[in-house]
Simulated assay, not measured.
Amino acid sequence: MADAEYVNIWMRPERPAYGPKPAYSRAQITEAAIRIADAEGMEAATMRRIAAEIGAGAMSLYRYVPSRDNLVELMADRVMGEIDVTGMPSGDWRADLTRYADGLRAMWLRHPWIATVQRSLPSFGPNQLLLIERLTGVLDAFVSIDENLGLIAMLNSYIEGTVREEISSAKEFRRIGLSESEWMARSYPYVDQLVKSGKYPMFTKIVMEARQPHLSRDDQFRNGLQRILDCIAAALPSNGRVSEGSRD
Rank of each mutant, 00 (worst) to 15 (best):
T98L: 10
S123Y: 03
M88G: 03
A32V: 05
P201W: 02
R105K: 08
S187K: 12
V7R: 15
F221M: 06
S187R: 15
M184K: 10
Q220H: 05
W183H: 06
E182S: 12
G125K: 01
P213G: 03
R110A: 07
I9N: 03
S243N: 04
L109E: 13
V79F: 06
A153S: 10
S181A: 15
I36Q: 12
D146S: 08
I34G: 04
A76V: 13
I114S: 14
L178F: 08
H214T: 02
P122C: 07
I132F: 11
E43P: 00
K199H: 03
A233P: 01
Y24F: 14
I228H: 04
I36T: 13
F203L: 13
L104F: 02
R247Q: 05
W113E: 03
E147I: 13
M47E: 02
E82P: 05
S60M: 06
P20H: 08
A233R: 15
R164M: 12
R105L: 01
W183Y: 13
E147Q: 13
D77P: 00
S238A: 14
H214P: 00
S238Q: 11
A106C: 03
V195S: 11
D218R: 09
R99Y: 13
V7C: 11
R63E: 08
D218P: 00
T98V: 12
R35A: 08
A23G: 13
P66F: 07
R211L: 08
L229R: 05
N8E: 12
P213K: 00
K171M: 04
N156T: 02
G137T: 09
D38G: 01
H111N: 14
L129M: 14
A45Y: 05
E53T: 06
P122T: 05
G137A: 08
A39I: 00
Y188S: 12
S67F: 01
R217K: 05
D219K: 04
S157C: 12
I50M: 06
P122W: 06
Y158A: 10
V191R: 15
L129C: 07
V242K: 14
Q28R: 05
N70Y: 03
M59I: 00
V195E: 14
A106E: 13
E209A: 06
Y24I: 07
L131K: 01
A17V: 04
R68G: 15
I228C: 05
P189D: 15
I29V: 10
E43A: 12
A51E: 03
T98S: 10
I29F: 04
A27V: 10
I29S: 14
I34V: 13
C231W: 00
D248E: 03
S179A: 02
Q220V: 01
N8C: 08
G57H: 05
R49H: 12
I34A: 05
R26C: 00
R134Q: 11
L74N: 10
